[in-house]
Design a protein around this nucleic acid. Structure first.
Lengths: 191, 191
DNA sequence: GACCATACGGAACATCGTTCCGTTTTGCCA
DNA sequence: TGGCAAAACGGAACGATGTTCCGTATGGTC
């Protein structure tokens, strides 16, 4: 589903098209760091030295652009799940650590958590995160079933944690990591 | 701080101004229910039968309009805190119930939770909610100090719960009430 | 009834996402 | 090498929205 349909290989596309796409990704990443993922399209286009039409040709929706920029990091997070499960002293600890990883990722990407929700006009983004991360979360929850209340859906947990990360940057009084940890703690079966 | 500076009384203002302001509030409330608090300014103006200039004259920022529409309900929520504390079997239960009340309020106001955060361009809205609700939350937390981990700030808790409510409407798979309850459960001192 | 401060309405401006099409570039083939 | 067709480009143009501004209408008062 998410494989070679637009791989980096020198497929049949023209050279300038590949170069522009790469420039666009680099420019978008740079602009996102400073202005957040809501940065004006014209800004990204200017930074990449292309016209706005070129952005839309390569990335029909903004979600496509954001996914392309962060795909590697999302994948890395997904792949960390099984590894943490193997390395951690208990499944619940693995879940805690994995959520921490996810939160760290989100809070360092200005504005990303906010556009992660459904109905925000970034459906492809929402779908990609869900496709990659919900199964991992479900796996961790299953493994930890004995230690936690069983009645939480992976989807709901991911959305909850994602929501907690909204606006977590530039507010020293709000620590999303801590709240996410509290939420996971609340999952624990009452002793 | 929040008293008679713009009370409903027939102050020195002109009659048509008062009437328009009332129409505007009614129209905004009606439009918010259907379109959410992000509804276009022109829509609200048309519904109230006034020009857009009239909106900006009465409510310089959208936050002012939203605050005016929901002020009564926010106040009611604030006032419910002490009452719940008196009525509930334990302070922690009072906190649970009060959070429930707050969540119920937020999830039924389409898009309100999303604009509640700082830096969203609705600072007056954010400030009003904080002024009214953080002290109440702090009071409940203090009362429940023996039952919970002491190291959570009222501000952080309110923001966390508010965040959990974002996008909770129109998604049957996401139950903000439940996640907020989980978060409060996570506050409980480990038995 | 006249006058003026108050308030009004909506045109005008700025910003942003998105589309569209005339022009340029690239790769290929003779 | 020179020419050509498809691919890609750039940015003007469009639509939606928030916000400002000012000529006009209204309300209260003398």
């Amino acid at each position: 589903m998410h494989d070679g349909d637009e791989g980096a290989g020198p497929a049949g596309r023209r050279k300038d098209a590949r170069r522009n796409k790469a420039n666009l990704l680099e420019a978008a990443a740079a602009v996102f760091v400073v202005q957040g993922v809501d940065a004006p399209v014209r800004e990204i286009a200017a930074r990449a030295g292309v016209g706005v039409g070129t952005i839309y040709r390569h990335f029909p929706t903004r979600a496509d652009l954001i996914v392309a920029v962060y795909r590697h990091q999302v994948d890395a997070c997904a792949e960390a799940g099984p590894r943490l499960l193997a390395e951690s002293p208990s499944p619940h600890t693995a879940l805690e650590r994995w959520i921490d990883l996810f939160v760290d990722f989100l809070v360092t990407k200005h504005g990303l958590a906010a556009v992660l929700q459904p109905g925000a006009g970034f459906d492809a983004l929402h779908a990609y995160f869900l496709d990659r991360l919900v199964p991992v979360c479900g796996h961790l929850l299953d493994a930890a079933a004995g230690e936690i209340r069983a009645d939480i859906e992976p989807y709901a947990l991911m959305r909850g944690v994602g929501n907690l990360c909204i606006g977590a940057d530039n507010d020293p009084r709000y620590d999303a990591r801590r709240l996410a940890a509290l939420l996971v703690a609340g999952l624990r079966r009452a002793g």
